[in-house]
Design a protein around this nucleic acid. Sequence first.
DNA 1: CCCTGTCAAGTCACG
DNA 2: CGTGACTTGACAGGG
Length: 287
Amino acid sequence: MRIGYACLNRSLPSAGKTFRLASYSEAKFRETVQHNLDALQQLLEFNVEHNLLFHRISSNTIPFASHPIQTVDWQEEFAEQLSSIGTCIKNNGFRISMHPDQFVLINAKDPKIVEKSIGDLSWHADFLDALGLDTTAKIQIHVGGVYGDKEAAIARFVHEHKRLPSKIQRRLAIEHDDRLFSVRDCMVIHKQTGIPVIFDNLHHECLHNGETQEEAMQQLAITWKKEDGIPLVDYSMQAPGERVGKHAQTLDDKHFTTFIKHVPIDCDIMLEIKDKEPSAIRAKALC
DNA sequence: CCCTGTCAAGTCACG
DNA sequence: CGTGACTTGACAGGG
């Protein structure tokens, strides 16, 4: 079981530095990518020292990567550094994931949105390919919108999934969410696509079909084939007294210990906790 | 220099 | 119908 925190380390330079589209220039782009890759290297070294061997790489690493304004051949220009980061990842036994944001909707009704989403997934796949990682390095997305008809929305997801380029398909995983698509809905999609499904404890608390956490995780575990690696799990805790679904500022050791006790499978756990690395270090000590 | 509105992108819930 | 939330963070202009 590996533990990680998402994207950023607050004690190190940001690995997800970006800038405004309005101030785009090739120079600014190159400078930012260079900064982010250097920061990623530093962050991975930090994580090795603290035995935090699951990492979600920020989607800001390559800003505007799939935007038409962006024409620099970053894979070529940064090939050497990307490959060396990949070697560090492989040598230390890291598990890697990426999580494109809410604008990626492969089940959208508007074909233009679907195409843009595939463009975004495409650069994520290119990035992981440039690192030289195998298919256990995953790109995780949510199922998408419901548009008033969940069955049709699922059918569109399945249809679009079949059309995806294999460089995306082999890395794609879905995560159930807190309002629209439950573990059960994702299992329906898995049966039709073979796609692995990521468990999220807080989403499951918010939206479920009566199954316990253990039951849900056991169901999802079978969606992970050998080439996908062991299952990925997102862990977070409701921020006390805040809006439902909002993530806690820091790890509650007791809550996490209880959660771990009810994890019946071998999996890699991503902490979605705001303060990032201090919580991950504590969590690792509790495992 | 700090403050804060706003940032490429979409959908849904809430007032 | 406008706004905030989403794994949020942080850019960048105005005070």
